[in-house]
Nucleic acid binder design. Structure first.
Lengths: 118, 118
DNA sequence: ACCCGATATGATGAATTGCTCAATCCATCA
DNA sequence: TGATGGATTGAGCAATTCATCATATCGGGT
Protein backbone atom coordinates (compact mmCIF):
# COMPACT_ATOMS: atom_id res chain seq x y z
CA UNK A 1 0.00 0.00 0.00
CA UNK A 2 1.43 3.36 1.00
CA UNK A 3 3.49 2.36 3.98
CA UNK A 4 6.42 4.50 2.97
CA UNK A 5 4.51 7.75 2.91
CA UNK A 6 4.49 10.22 5.81
CA UNK A 7 2.06 9.28 8.53
CA UNK A 8 -0.37 12.11 7.87
CA UNK A 9 -0.73 10.89 4.33
CA UNK A 10 -1.39 7.32 5.42
CA UNK A 11 -3.96 8.63 7.86
CA UNK A 12 -5.62 10.69 5.15
CA UNK A 13 -5.82 7.56 3.00
CA UNK A 14 -7.57 5.71 5.76
CA UNK A 15 -10.21 8.41 5.98
CA UNK A 16 -10.48 8.41 2.21
CA UNK A 17 -11.33 4.73 2.43
CA UNK A 18 -14.25 5.64 4.68
CA UNK A 19 -15.32 8.68 2.72
CA UNK A 20 -18.20 7.25 0.74
CA UNK A 21 -21.80 6.59 1.73
CA UNK A 22 -21.84 3.09 0.30
CA UNK A 23 -18.73 2.12 2.18
CA UNK A 24 -20.12 3.54 5.42
CA UNK A 25 -23.32 1.64 4.87
CA UNK A 26 -21.42 -1.57 4.34
CA UNK A 27 -19.32 -1.04 7.45
CA UNK A 28 -22.41 -0.37 9.51
CA UNK A 29 -23.97 -3.55 8.26
CA UNK A 30 -20.82 -5.42 9.16
CA UNK A 31 -20.58 -3.95 12.64
CA UNK A 32 -24.29 -4.39 13.31
CA UNK A 33 -24.06 -8.11 12.70
CA UNK A 34 -23.42 -9.96 15.98
CA UNK A 35 -21.82 -12.78 14.01
CA UNK A 36 -19.36 -10.18 12.81
CA UNK A 37 -19.46 -11.61 9.31
CA UNK A 38 -21.76 -10.80 6.44
CA UNK A 39 -21.97 -12.41 3.03
CA UNK A 40 -21.76 -10.31 -0.10
CA UNK A 41 -25.14 -11.61 -1.11
CA UNK A 42 -26.66 -10.19 2.07
CA UNK A 43 -24.94 -6.85 1.54
CA UNK A 44 -26.29 -6.91 -1.95
CA UNK A 45 -29.90 -7.28 -0.92
CA UNK A 46 -29.53 -4.90 2.01
CA UNK A 47 -28.04 -2.11 -0.07
CA UNK A 48 -29.84 -2.74 -3.34
CA UNK A 49 -26.77 -2.02 -5.43
CA UNK A 50 -25.47 -3.51 -8.63
CA UNK A 51 -23.10 -6.36 -7.81
CA UNK A 52 -20.07 -4.89 -9.52
CA UNK A 53 -20.65 -1.54 -7.91
CA UNK A 54 -20.73 -3.01 -4.42
CA UNK A 55 -17.75 -5.15 -5.26
CA UNK A 56 -15.67 -2.12 -6.17
CA UNK A 57 -16.39 -0.53 -2.83
CA UNK A 58 -15.57 -3.75 -1.04
CA UNK A 59 -12.33 -3.76 -2.95
CA UNK A 60 -11.48 -0.28 -1.66
CA UNK A 61 -12.17 -1.37 1.90
CA UNK A 62 -10.01 -4.45 1.46
CA UNK A 63 -7.17 -2.55 -0.14
CA UNK A 64 -7.03 -0.24 2.86
CA UNK A 65 -7.28 -3.20 5.23
CA UNK A 66 -10.45 -1.87 6.74
CA UNK A 67 -12.18 -5.20 6.22
CA UNK A 68 -11.10 -8.76 5.62
CA UNK A 69 -12.87 -11.39 3.59
CA UNK A 70 -12.91 -15.14 3.38
CA UNK A 71 -14.52 -17.54 1.00
CA UNK A 72 -17.18 -19.89 2.29
CA UNK A 73 -18.16 -22.16 -0.54
CA UNK A 74 -19.54 -20.09 -3.34
CA UNK A 75 -20.06 -16.95 -1.30
CA UNK A 76 -17.64 -14.51 0.33
CA UNK A 77 -17.92 -13.26 3.90
CA UNK A 78 -16.70 -9.87 5.05
CA UNK A 79 -15.91 -8.58 8.50
CA UNK A 80 -14.28 -5.46 9.97
CA UNK A 81 -10.54 -6.00 10.04
CA UNK A 82 -9.95 -4.46 13.46
CA UNK A 83 -11.96 -3.34 16.50
CA UNK A 84 -10.73 0.23 16.00
CA UNK A 85 -12.68 0.41 12.78
CA UNK A 86 -15.83 -0.10 14.76
CA UNK A 87 -14.63 2.57 17.16
CA UNK A 88 -14.09 5.05 14.37
CA UNK A 89 -17.70 4.73 13.35
CA UNK A 90 -18.89 5.06 16.92
CA UNK A 91 -16.80 8.15 17.59
CA UNK A 92 -17.99 9.69 14.35
CA UNK A 93 -21.53 9.04 15.44
CA UNK A 94 -21.01 10.74 18.78
CA UNK A 95 -19.48 13.74 17.11
CA UNK A 96 -22.29 14.03 14.61
CA UNK A 97 -24.89 13.59 17.28
CA UNK A 98 -23.58 16.55 19.23
CA UNK A 99 -22.87 18.64 16.18
CA UNK A 100 -26.21 18.12 14.54
CA UNK A 101 -27.91 18.89 17.81
CA UNK A 102 -26.04 22.14 18.13
CA UNK A 103 -26.78 23.32 14.61
CA UNK A 104 -30.37 22.29 15.07
CA UNK A 105 -30.65 24.45 18.17
CA UNK A 106 -29.04 27.27 16.27
CA UNK A 107 -31.53 26.91 13.47
CA UNK A 108 -34.39 26.78 15.93
CA UNK A 109 -33.30 30.07 17.42
CA UNK A 110 -33.04 31.65 14.03
CA UNK A 111 -36.51 30.59 13.01
CA UNK A 112 -37.99 31.43 16.39
CA UNK A 113 -36.81 34.97 17.03
CA UNK A 114 -38.28 36.54 13.92
CA UNK A 115 -41.58 34.96 14.82
CA UNK A 116 -41.56 36.67 18.21
CA UNK A 117 -40.97 40.02 16.58
CA UNK A 118 -44.06 39.74 14.44
CA UNK B 1 -24.88 21.70 5.52
CA UNK B 2 -26.29 18.28 4.73
CA UNK B 3 -28.41 17.71 7.78
CA UNK B 4 -31.31 16.37 5.79
CA UNK B 5 -29.41 13.52 4.21
CA UNK B 6 -29.42 9.96 5.54
CA UNK B 7 -27.04 9.41 8.40
CA UNK B 8 -24.61 7.25 6.47
CA UNK B 9 -24.20 10.04 3.98
CA UNK B 10 -23.54 12.60 6.68
CA UNK B 11 -20.99 10.27 8.19
CA UNK B 12 -19.31 9.80 4.83
CA UNK B 13 -19.10 13.56 4.49
CA UNK B 14 -17.38 13.84 7.83
CA UNK B 15 -14.75 11.36 6.73
CA UNK B 16 -14.44 13.22 3.44
CA UNK B 17 -13.61 16.31 5.42
CA UNK B 18 -10.71 14.42 6.98
CA UNK B 19 -9.61 12.71 3.79
CA UNK B 20 -6.72 14.92 2.80
CA UNK B 21 -3.11 15.00 4.04
CA UNK B 22 -3.07 18.76 4.48
CA UNK B 23 -6.20 18.69 6.58
CA UNK B 24 -4.84 15.85 8.71
CA UNK B 25 -1.64 17.77 9.20
CA UNK B 26 -3.55 20.84 10.28
CA UNK B 27 -5.66 18.86 12.72
CA UNK B 28 -2.59 17.26 14.21
CA UNK B 29 -1.03 20.64 14.71
CA UNK B 30 -4.22 21.83 16.38
CA UNK B 31 -4.47 18.86 18.70
CA UNK B 32 -0.78 18.91 19.53
CA UNK B 33 -1.01 22.45 20.82
CA UNK B 34 -1.70 22.46 24.57
CA UNK B 35 -3.28 25.89 24.20
CA UNK B 36 -5.73 24.21 21.87
CA UNK B 37 -5.58 27.16 19.53
CA UNK B 38 -3.24 27.86 16.65
CA UNK B 39 -3.00 30.94 14.46
CA UNK B 40 -3.21 30.64 10.70
CA UNK B 41 0.20 32.27 10.49
CA UNK B 42 1.69 29.46 12.57
CA UNK B 43 -0.01 26.80 10.47
CA UNK B 44 1.37 28.56 7.47
CA UNK B 45 4.96 28.38 8.58
CA UNK B 46 4.58 24.85 9.96
CA UNK B 47 3.10 23.46 6.77
CA UNK B 48 4.93 25.64 4.25
CA UNK B 49 1.88 26.03 2.05
CA UNK B 50 0.61 28.90 0.00
CA UNK B 51 -1.78 30.98 2.07
CA UNK B 52 -4.77 30.54 -0.18
CA UNK B 53 -4.22 26.83 -0.40
CA UNK B 54 -4.16 26.41 3.35
CA UNK B 55 -7.15 28.67 3.63
CA UNK B 56 -9.19 26.48 1.32
CA UNK B 57 -8.51 23.46 3.45
CA UNK B 58 -9.35 25.39 6.60
CA UNK B 59 -12.57 26.35 4.91
CA UNK B 60 -13.43 22.69 4.32
CA UNK B 61 -12.78 21.89 7.96
CA UNK B 62 -14.93 24.81 9.08
CA UNK B 63 -17.75 23.95 6.72
CA UNK B 64 -17.93 20.46 8.20
CA UNK B 65 -17.71 21.87 11.74
CA UNK B 66 -14.54 19.95 12.42
CA UNK B 67 -12.81 23.12 13.60
CA UNK B 68 -13.90 26.51 14.82
CA UNK B 69 -12.11 29.80 14.35
CA UNK B 70 -12.08 33.18 16.00
CA UNK B 71 -10.46 36.43 15.10
CA UNK B 72 -7.81 37.84 17.44
CA UNK B 73 -6.83 41.20 16.11
CA UNK B 74 -5.36 40.80 12.70
CA UNK B 75 -4.88 37.04 12.94
CA UNK B 76 -7.30 34.13 13.11
CA UNK B 77 -7.07 31.27 15.60
CA UNK B 78 -8.29 27.75 14.92
CA UNK B 79 -9.12 24.91 17.27
CA UNK B 80 -10.75 21.49 17.03
CA UNK B 81 -14.49 21.94 17.32
CA UNK B 82 -15.11 18.93 19.54
CA UNK B 83 -13.13 16.46 21.65
CA UNK B 84 -14.35 13.60 19.47
CA UNK B 85 -12.36 15.01 16.58
CA UNK B 86 -9.21 14.48 18.60
CA UNK B 87 -10.43 10.97 19.38
CA UNK B 88 -10.96 10.18 15.73
CA UNK B 89 -7.32 10.94 15.02
CA UNK B 90 -6.16 8.89 17.99
CA UNK B 91 -8.26 5.88 17.05
CA UNK B 92 -7.02 6.13 13.47
CA UNK B 93 -3.48 6.15 14.78
CA UNK B 94 -4.05 3.03 16.87
CA UNK B 95 -5.56 1.24 13.92
CA UNK B 96 -2.72 2.20 11.62
CA UNK B 97 -0.15 1.28 14.20
CA UNK B 98 -1.48 -2.26 14.44
CA UNK B 99 -2.14 -2.58 10.74
CA UNK B 100 1.22 -1.33 9.59
CA UNK B 101 2.90 -3.63 12.10
CA UNK B 102 1.02 -6.60 10.73
CA UNK B 103 1.81 -5.88 7.11
CA UNK B 104 5.40 -5.22 8.04
CA UNK B 105 5.67 -8.66 9.66
CA UNK B 106 4.07 -10.15 6.59
CA UNK B 107 6.59 -8.45 4.38
CA UNK B 108 9.44 -9.56 6.60
CA UNK B 109 8.36 -13.14 6.25
CA UNK B 110 8.12 -12.83 2.52
CA UNK B 111 11.61 -11.44 2.19
CA UNK B 112 13.05 -13.87 4.67
CA UNK B 113 11.86 -17.23 3.43
CA UNK B 114 13.33 -17.03 -0.06
CA UNK B 115 16.63 -16.18 1.56
CA UNK B 116 16.55 -19.39 3.59
CA UNK B 117 16.00 -21.42 0.46
CA UNK B 118 19.16 -20.20 -1.19
C1' DA C 1 -16.02 -31.25 -18.82
C1' DC C 2 -19.70 -27.87 -18.93
C1' DC C 3 -22.79 -24.65 -17.04
C1' DC C 4 -24.55 -21.58 -13.61
C1' DG C 5 -24.75 -18.51 -9.74
C1' DA C 6 -21.80 -15.57 -7.09
C1' DT C 7 -18.12 -12.30 -6.90
C1' DA C 8 -14.32 -9.62 -8.79
C1' DT C 9 -11.76 -6.92 -12.29
C1' DG C 10 -11.05 -3.60 -16.16
C1' DA C 11 -12.18 0.21 -19.12
C1' DT C 12 -14.78 4.31 -20.15
C1' DG C 13 -17.07 8.83 -19.63
C1' DA C 14 -19.14 11.80 -15.95
C1' DA C 15 -18.74 14.16 -11.71
C1' DT C 16 -16.09 15.82 -7.84
C1' DT C 17 -12.07 17.58 -5.69
C1' DG C 18 -7.64 19.86 -5.53
C1' DC C 19 -4.16 23.36 -6.97
C1' DT C 20 -2.73 27.86 -8.78
C1' DC C 21 -3.33 32.58 -9.46
C1' DA C 22 -5.81 36.92 -9.10
C1' DA C 23 -8.82 39.61 -6.53
C1' DT C 24 -11.09 40.82 -2.22
C1' DC C 25 -11.93 41.58 2.65
C1' DC C 26 -10.66 43.01 7.31
C1' DA C 27 -8.03 45.03 11.02
C1' DT C 28 -4.25 47.95 12.25
C1' DC C 29 -1.41 51.83 12.14
C1' DA C 30 0.43 56.01 10.23
C1' DT D 1 -8.24 57.83 4.87
C1' DG D 2 -4.72 55.33 2.60
C1' DA D 3 -1.40 51.79 2.97
C1' DT D 4 0.06 47.33 4.75
C1' DG D 5 0.05 42.50 6.42
C1' DG D 6 -2.97 38.63 7.30
C1' DA D 7 -6.63 35.75 5.72
C1' DT D 8 -10.34 34.48 2.61
C1' DT D 9 -12.83 33.91 -1.74
C1' DG D 10 -13.49 32.93 -6.70
C1' DA D 11 -12.30 31.19 -11.37
C1' DG D 12 -10.06 27.96 -14.40
C1' DC D 13 -7.59 23.91 -15.34
C1' DA D 14 -5.50 19.38 -13.72
C1' DA D 15 -6.08 15.23 -11.20
C1' DT D 16 -8.80 11.98 -8.70
C1' DT D 17 -12.88 9.38 -7.79
C1' DC D 18 -17.35 7.41 -9.10
C1' DA D 19 -20.87 4.78 -11.79
C1' DT D 20 -21.83 1.83 -15.54
C1' DC D 21 -21.09 -1.78 -18.62
C1' DA D 22 -18.64 -5.74 -20.34
C1' DT D 23 -15.70 -9.35 -19.21
C1' DA D 24 -13.35 -12.63 -16.25
C1' DT D 25 -12.75 -15.81 -12.22
C1' DC D 26 -14.08 -19.11 -8.84
C1' DG D 27 -17.02 -23.06 -6.76
C1' DG D 28 -20.56 -26.26 -6.96
C1' DG D 29 -23.56 -29.21 -9.28
C1' DT D 30 -24.83 -32.08 -13.42
Amino acid sequence: MDRHAPLYEIKANLFKALAHPVRIRVLELLTAEPAGEVAVSELLTATDLEASHLSQHLSVLRRHRVVTSRRAGSSVLYRPAHPRIVDLLLVAREFLHDTIDATQRQRDELTELPALRA
